[in-house]
Amino acid sequence: MTRYLAGLITATAALAAGVWLMLAPYGLDYPSGGTALQVDMWTGAGVCAVALATIVVWARAWRGQLRADGLLPERPAAQAVEQAEPEQPAAPAPAVPTTEDLHSLLKPLVAALAADQLERTAKRHTEEDW
């Protein structure tokens, strides 16, 4: 934690110094158009840019570390995506016929075959009797 805090404090103080550098030429009445004015303005702008970038880097690093340690919840954006796409119900598994299904399917067929066989046998017996 120390390094994140130290980085943030340093960068924030530097940001304040950068802002002061940009205001100083007007506050201290620098001669207009002089080198000192340009040096302070450009250096102040550079300090502000570096300080802002450093603040962003340290803040992101600290947030990432807090997330990794489980002290911060996951990103709200990731949660929103999860909420926007509700879990689809699992697709029904392809129907695999069970033994009972096969029995019920074949039973009428077998019965019809048996009836047909009985009829033929009876007919044959009748012809033999004649």
Partner: peptide, 9 residues
């Protein structure tokens, strides 16, 4: 990058 930023200051 953070360390580099502080060093740059």
């Amino acid at each position: 990058w953070g360390i580099a930023g502080v060093g740059l200051l």
